[in-house]
Design a protein around this nucleic acid. Structure first.
Lengths: 230, 230
DNA sequence: CGCGGGGATATGCCATGGTAGTATCTCACC
DNA sequence: GGTGAGATACTACCATGGCATATCCCCGCG
């Protein structure tokens, strides 16, 4: 067995390696496999992933653009700490973007979007009742993504993703329990209903309310585990 | 003299090359030195810039993230055409972001921000009256940047920049004349006044109105020069 | 015992070589 | 003359090697 990192983290030699490494590292950082302030060496990562240093370097540059890693020239690269101010700013920007997109979605919702969202909420309900956060989080992601892309704004989702990283680490720390997942699903349903009934004001308000949910726990968390915060 | 591209486009060997190449290529694409749909070969660019292919490649990857270039694996890289739909989406996203930031700026404007904006508007007035677009455009950029960074939201400016690229090529096509520059300055002054008097609603509205100015000419331009549009 | 300087080490950065894949152009064949 | 198959010349992609620089540790000096 090659010295890969962990199960589910292998990569396919046929597809572009650099992009895969980027996605892999991003998932591992968000999933806290790599802890904040942990050193990441190009050479060591390349060794562990079984690839050369070039695609690793490319991935780290892109991650640095999203401030998920901090690169210090000729010194080293570390997983960025969770900076509260930055998380707050990311939250602010995400809210601005997603509120605008959701509003637009509610103005002229495509039929396919209605169908997809309805389906996703059903799935979320099942995952929540089964108490499976590992199934739920991808569905949550898919819901927000569907609103962006289903409204014909693919770039908005890329932007949102690029700010979401810092927030996702916080979300991962406050792992949702069953009650929380049901609450989120309820909020999704409210957003969906507003889109379906073409009520932009209500849709925007519901989305803003929903996004604020994430931040409720951050200050407690920062007090509990100061080591991984800035 | 080394075979560099053009005057004002050299780079400093002491600073990180990759980042410099990125900024250089971005300016050249926005300034239409490289035309839409023009092929960009890693090898040829490296030759012309007098650097190796590695930093050029890094720059192209980042530009691809902003969709200023399209990379076709194993085939080639081209300057992306100006896609009207994408410009419209960029405009939408930028408006969402900058409206939110401007609103926040007006809620609690730092004294330093007031001072900087006031100064910038003065400078813009002079550049406009002198009829110097090449002086004016950096000042316009600085104005918008100051609002983001002066409100303690540095990441917002990076986000805005990443969507602004497509729009900037359109702006460059419709080079501002003296009257237009004075109009823009007037709009800046209106935004400034709203921030200074801490009137968030007025500030947001003024910013939204201002940003729409850019798009007024795009459809004429698309009809005039179909070759560089998608 | 404290402090400053010099060398060893490790890092990210840039250059270059080799590989696989794609488009094009040419020439044989129908 | 038109069509298809093969050779060729490109491309981006990944691997690897060498380099300058920042840091750390240890030794010597005050």
């Amino acid at each position: 067995m090659p010295p890969t990192a962990a199960a589910g983290y292998e990569l396919d030699p046929k597809l572009p390696i650099g992009a895969q490494v980027y996605g892999l590292l991003k998932r591992m950082i968000i999933g806290l496999v790599f802890k904040p302030n942990e050193a990441l060496s190009e050479k060591e990562l390349a060794l562990r992933l079984g690839v050369s240093r070039t695609p690793v370097r490319e991935a780290l540059i892109r991650l640095a653009d999203e401030t998920l890693v901090d690169v210090f020239p000729q010194r080293g690269t570390v997983v960025s700490p969770i900076r509260v101010a930055e998380v707050m700013e990311a939250q602010f920007l995400r809210e601005a973007l997603e509120a605008a997109v959701t509003r637009r979605a509610a103005e002229q919702p495509p039929a396919a979007l209605i169908r997809d969202l309805s389906r996703l909420i059903d799935d979320q309900h099942h995952a929540a009742n089964a108490g499976r956060p590992e199934d739920y989080m991808p569905l949550d992601e898919a819901f927000h993504r569907a609103i962006s892309e289903g409204t014909g704004m693919p770039r908005s989702w890329r932007l949102i993703q690029s700010v979401k990283g810092q927030m996702d680490r916080v979300r991962f720390l406050s792992l949702p329990n069953k009650a929380h997942m049901l609450l989120l699903t309820e909020q999704h349903a409210e957003i969906f209903k507003a889109i379906e009934t073409q009520d932009p004001d209500r849709a925007e308000a519901a989305m803003r309310h929903h996004l604020k949910e994430v931040l409720k726990t951050i200050h407690e968390l920062a007090a509990e585990m100061p080591a991984i915060f800035a």
